[in-house]
Design a protein around this nucleic acid. Structure first.
Length: 585
RNA sequence: CGGGGUGUAGCUCAGCUUGGUAGAGCGCGUGCUUUGGGAGCACGAAGUCGCAGGUUCGAAUCCUGUCACCCCGACCA
C-alpha cells in the first residue's frame, strides 16, 4: 500500500474532546474519527487494526470448535419481552417502531435470537454440545458514551453462545473458551488479567472477566499480592476481619446541627470528624417474610456492596430480595440521610446488618435519627443494647466493597491491591435463563424433555485496540503489538525518487509476497515529518532508505521501540524483517 | 436524568465583559529556497460565528429558546 493512496489524516494537536491517551492517539494517528457521541468512523488504518484483531478472534474461536453465524441486529421487541430483558436493559436498548408499527430493537446482544434458532433446530442430546458465535456490530443506547472506543453506542463485538445437555458439558465449553480467550489476548499482544466476576444464576466460579489493567479503565479490580486471587470490585471478597462491639463510650452523645450537607464527607468536614469515624446507614426495602426492611451499616469511608448485602440478608435472615429505594414510605419511617443504627430499635420487620469494620468500639459519629442533625460518641452497647444479641434482628457480615489494603479472602496473609481495568472479554455460565422462557428444549438419554443449558461469551473487539494503545505508547505515539498493527512495516524513503524509489518499490513487493504487510510512505515530504508520522501511528518496524546506506547497498531497519537503526543489505531485508517480527509477537 | 462546561476556518484557540470592517497559530494552495527527526520566506484561498427568535440604526458580542458535543455524578460490556 502506498501512503498517498490511503486516507491517513494525522494531526499534531491534541483534540480537546479526547480525555484518555488511547482516544487522543487514535484520533491523532488518523485511525478513527468521531461522527456523533459514541459512534466513530474507522479510517483505513483503524479498520485494518480492528480487522486483524477480529481475525485473531475468529481463528481462535474456530479452533475451539465454535461455528460462526450471523444473526440480525433488527430483532422484534416481543422476543425481548419473553425473557424480560426489555425491562432489564431498559433505556440502554435501542428500539423503534417500523412502518407497520412493530416495535423493533437494534440489538446489543443476541441471546434471545440465538436461543430461538437453537430451539427450532436442536431437539436431542445427540446434537449437543453446540457453540455458535458471531462477530458483528452491536448497539447500546449508552447514557453517557465516553473515552473514545471505551464506551460507545455502536461497537464491534464477538459474541458466542454455548448449548449443553448437562453441566459437565457446560464446564468443558467454559474451560475451552476461557483458554481460547487467553490465546486471543496473548496473540493480540494485549496485557490482561482474569478476575472473578458476578456469578449469576449458577454460582461458584461461573463468570470471569478478562481485564486490561490501566488507569483509564472504568472497572475496579482487586488482587492479592500473593498472586492467587483476583476479582472485580462487585465480586471481591475480603479475608477475615474481626469485630468487637464492646468498648466503653467515648463520651456523652452530642448533637450537631448539620443541614444542607449532602454527603458523608461534607458532614464529616463540618463536624470535624473523619469519614472513617462515621457510620453510614442505608435502608433497603426487602421482599421477605416477615422482614420488610434491612438496614446496612458500614464505615463512612466504605461503600455498601449490593450483592454482598443481598447475600448476607438471605443467609442471616432469609430475605429474598433487596432494593435500595427512596419512596415516600421509607421517608415516612426514617429521616433518610440522618439515619443511625438506632433506627432499627423497636421497629417491626426491620433487621440490621453491620460490616465488621463498623462493628467496633471507639469513637463514632452518625445520624441523629432526626432531620438535619448528626450525633457524636455513638456507642454500640449503650445505643443498641439488647438488640446486639438478638440474632433475628442483628448480624455482622461482610457487606462492603473490598478495597486496597484489605486481607485477601484466601486468608494466607495476602493483602489486596486495587487497580483500574478495561473489560475486554467476559465468559459467563448462563444456565437456563433463556432456554426456559423461549422453550429451547432437548430430549435426554432417558427420553425426558429438558431445557438446554447455556453459556455466553463476549469480546469487545474495539476494546482490544483501545487496551493495546492504552498500554502501548510513548511520548511520540502508539506502539502497536505487531499482530494488530495497521501495517507491520513502514518503508520510509528519505526521498521517493531514483534508486531509493526502485528499492522501496522492490522491498514493498517482496515483503508483501511473504505476507508481511507494509505501507510505503511515498509522500513528497521532509524526512522528519515522515518519521514523526510513522512514530505517531506506531508501525512496529521502519525501513528507512537514504542515500548514505543505498550507496553501500544497505537500508536502515529499526523497531518502533528501538532508538538506533541497523544497517541491513538490501538482499537480506526480507529475512531480517521476518526475524525481527518473530522476536516478540 | 441532576450538576458543570464548550460551540468562531479542516485542527487548536483568541475576540464576547464595554454591540460598530471576523482574527492568530497549525494545516491547505502557488512560487522560490531548503531536504536524515514535524523547514524558511513571500503571496493566497478558506468561516451561514451551532440553529431559531428577540432587543437595536447595527449582534460573534446583549436577551429568550433550542440543538450538539465534552466533563462529574448516576448507570453500565
Amino acid at each position: 500500500m502506498k501512503w498517498s493512496q490511503s486516507l491517513i489524516p494525522t494531526q499534531k494537536e491534541i483534540p480537546t474532546d479526547a480525555q484518555i491517551i488511547s482516544h487522543q492517539l487514535m484520533l491523532r494517528a488518523g485511525l478513527i474519527r468521531q461522527v456523533t457521541a459514541g459512534a466513530y468512523d474507522f479510517l483505513p488504518l483503524g479498520l485494518r487494526a480492528l480487522n486483524k484483531a477480529a481475525q485473531i478472534v475468529r481463528q481462535e474461536m474456530d479452533r475451539a470448535g465454535c461455528a460462526e453465524v450471523q444473526l440480525p441486529i433488527l430483532q422484534p421487541l416481543e422476543l425481548w419481552q419473553k425473557t424480560g430483558r426489555d425491562v432489564a436493559y431498559g433505556e440502554n436498548l435501542f428500539k423503534f417502531k417500523d412502518r407497520h408499527g412493530r416495535l423493533t430493537t437494534i440489538a446489543p446482544t443476541a441471546e434471545e435470537v440465538v436461543t430461538e434458532l437453537v430451539a427450532g433446530t436442536i431437539s436431542s442430546y445427540k446434537q449437543l454440545p453446540l457453540i455458535l458465535y458471531q462477530i458483528g456490530t452491536k448497539f447500546r443506547d449508552e447514557y453517557r458514551p465516553r473515552f473514545g472506543l471505551l464506551r460507545v453506542r455502536e461497537f464491534l463485538m464477538k459474541d458466542a453462545y454455548s448449548f449443553h445437555s448437562n453441566l459437565a458439558q457446560l464446564d468443558e465449553a467454559y474451560e475451552s473458551l476461557y483458554a481460547a480467550y487467553e490465546r486471543i489476548f496473548q496473540r493480540c499482544g494485549v496485557p490482561y488479567v482474569v478476575v472473578e466476576a458476578e456469578a449469576g444464576p449458577i454460582g461458584g466460579s461461573a463468570s470471569h472477566e478478562f481485564m486490561t489493567p490501566c488507569d483509564a479503565g472504568e472497572d475496579v479490580l482487586l488482587f492479592s499480592d500473593k498472586n492467587n486471587y483476583a476479582a472485580n470490585v462487585e465480586k471481591a471478597e475480603t479475608g477475615h476481619r474481626s469485630h468487637d462491639l464492646g468498648g466503653a463510650p467515648t463520651g456523652e452523645l452530642e448533637k450537631a446541627h448539620t443541614p444542607d450537607l449532602p454527603s458523608i464527607d461534607e458532614v464529616g468536614k463540618f463536624m470535624k470528624v473523619k469519614s472513617k469515624n462515621m457510620l453510614k446507614t442505608l435502608v433497603f426495602q426487602a421482599q421477605g417474610n416477615p422482614t420488610r426492611w434491612v438496614m446496612g451499616v458500614v464505615r463512612g469511608d466504605h461503600d455498601i456492596n449490593e450483592a454482598k448485602i443481598k447475600k448476607a440478608a438471605r443467609e442471616k435472615f432469609g430475605v429474598e430480595s433487596l432494593a435500595l429505594v427512596d419512596t415516600p414510605e421509607v421517608r415516612s419511617l426514617w429521616p433518610i440521610g440522618f439515619v443511625s443504627p438506632r433506627g432499627a430499635i423497636g421497629r417491626n420487620h426491620t433487621v440490621i446488618l453491620v460490616d465488621p469494620d463498623a462493628a467496633q468500639g471507639g469513637f463514632w459519629a452518625t445520624g441523629a435519627d432526626e432531620i438535619d442533625y448528626h450525633i457524636k460518641h455513638f456507642n454500640w452497647q449503650r445505643e443498641l443494647g439488647a438488640v446486639l444479641n438478638d440474632a433475628e434482628k442483628f448480624a455482622v457480615a461482610d457487606i462492603r466493597n473490598a478495597q486496597s489494603g484489605d486481607p485477601s479472602p484466601k486468608n494466607d496473609g495476602g493483602v489486596l491491591q486495587s487497580s483500574r481495568g478495561i473489560e475486554i472479554g467476559h465468559v459467563f455460565k448462563l444456565g437456563t435463563k433463556y432456554t426456559v422462557p423461549l422453550g429451547a428444549m432437548f430430549t435426554d438419554e432417558t427420553g425426558r424433555e429438558q431445557p438446554i443449558i447455556m453459556g455466553t461469551y463476549g469480546i469487545g473487539v474495539g476494546r482490544i485496540l483501545l487496551a493495546a494503545v492504552e498500554t502501548g505508547h510513548d511520548d511520540k505515539g502508539i506502539i502497536w503489538p505487531s499482530a494488530i498493527a495497521p501495517y507491520q512495516v513502514v518503508i520510509t524513503p528519505i526521498k521517493y525518487e531514483g534508486q531509493a524509489r526502485e528499492v522501496a518499490d522492490q522491498l514493498h513487493d517482496q515483503l508483501n509476497a511473504v505476507e508481511i504487510d507494509c505501507i510505503l510512505d511515498d509522500r513528497d515530504a521532509r524526512p522528519g515529518f515522515k518519521f514523526a508520522d510513522a512514530d505517531l501511528i506506531g508501525f512496529p518496524v521502519r525501513i528507512t532508505l537514504g542515500e548514505r546506506g543505498l550507496k553501500e547497498g544497505q537500508v536502515e531497519i529499526k523497531k518502533r521501540t528501538q532508538a538506533e537503526a541497523q544497517l541491513v543489505p538490501v538482499a537480506q531485508v526480507v529475512q531480517f524483517v521476518q526475524d525481527l517480527l518473530l522476536q516478540h509477537g
